[in-house]
Amino acid sequence: MHNVIDQSGLLAISTRLQRLSDQLRKDGQKIYELYGVAFEPKWFPVIYTLYQKPILSVVEIANEIGYTHPSTISLLKELEKQKLIRSKRDKTDERKRLLVLTEKGNMLVEQMKPVWNTMVKSLTTLTDTSNNIMKAIEEVEEEMEKQSFYQRAQLIKRKE
Rank of each mutant, 00 (worst) to 15 (best):
Glu80Lys: 09
Glu110Asp: 09
Arg25Lys: 07
Thr118His: 10
Gly66Ile: 11
Ile13Gln: 05
Ile47Lys: 07
Leu126Lys: 14
Ile61Gln: 06
Ile13Cys: 01
Leu75Asn: 06
Lys159Phe: 11
Phe44Tyr: 11
Thr15Ser: 04
Glu138Ser: 12
Tyr32Gln: 15
Tyr32Gly: 12
Asn63Lys: 06
Asn117Gly: 03
Leu126Thr: 12
Glu160Gly: 10
Gln151Gly: 08
Glu60Lys: 15
Ser71Ala: 13
Lys77Tyr: 05
Thr15Gln: 04
Leu10Ser: 07
Lys83Ile: 11
Met119Gly: 04
Gly105Val: 10
Phe149His: 10
Leu75Lys: 10
Lys135Tyr: 14
Lys91Phe: 09
Ser71Gly: 13
Lys135Ala: 14
Val58Tyr: 01
Ser8Lys: 01
Glu138Met: 12
Arg19Asn: 03
Met1Asp: 07
Glu142Thr: 14
Met119Pro: 03
Thr72Cys: 09
Arg19His: 02
Gln111Tyr: 02
Val140Cys: 08
Lys88Met: 15
Ile61Cys: 05
Met1Gln: 06
Glu94Leu: 08
Glu142Tyr: 09
Ile5Arg: 07
Arg86Asn: 15
Lys113Asn: 02
Leu20Tyr: 05
Glu64Lys: 03
Asp27Glu: 13
Gln23Cys: 00
Asn63Ser: 04
Ser57Cys: 04
Lys104Asp: 14
Leu20Ser: 05
Arg16Pro: 01
Ile5Met: 09
Leu126Asn: 08
Met144Ala: 08
Val140Met: 13
Pro70Phe: 02
Arg86His: 14
Thr49Gln: 08
Glu141Gly: 13
Trp116Thr: 14
Lys91Cys: 09
Glu160Tyr: 13
Val120Trp: 06
Val100His: 11
Pro70Cys: 05
Thr124Gln: 09
Lys96Arg: 15
Thr129Ser: 12
Ser74Leu: 04
Gln111Ser: 10
Val115Glu: 03
Ser148Pro: 13
Trp116Pro: 01
Glu94Gln: 10
Thr127Met: 10
Ser21Phe: 00
Glu64Tyr: 05
Gln147Pro: 03
Thr68Val: 01
Glu94Thr: 10
Leu84Glu: 11
Asn63Asp: 10
Ala38Tyr: 02
Pro70Ala: 06
Asn63Phe: 00
Lys30Glu: 15
Ser130Val: 12
Leu123Phe: 14
Glu33Gln: 15
Thr129Cys: 09
Trp43Lys: 08
Trp43Arg: 07
Ala153Gly: 14
Met1Ala: 07
Glu142Asp: 15
Ala12Lys: 06
Leu98Phe: 02
Glu60Ile: 10
Pro70Lys: 09
Glu40Gly: 01
Val100Leu: 13
His69Gln: 13
Pro45Thr: 07
Val58Gly: 14
Leu20Asn: 03
Arg95Ile: 02
Lys104Cys: 09
Ser74Gly: 02
Ile156Leu: 06
Leu20Val: 04
Leu20His: 05
Lys81Leu: 01
Thr68Arg: 03
Pro41Gly: 01
Gln82Asp: 04
Arg19Gly: 00
Ala136Pro: 00
Lys81Gln: 04
Thr124Ile: 05
Glu141Leu: 12
Asn3Glu: 11
Glu142Asn: 12
Leu56Ile: 06
Ile61Met: 06
Tyr32Val: 15
Thr68Glu: 08
Val100Cys: 11
Met119His: 04
His69Arg: 15
Gln18Gly: 02
Leu34Gly: 12
Ser8Gly: 02
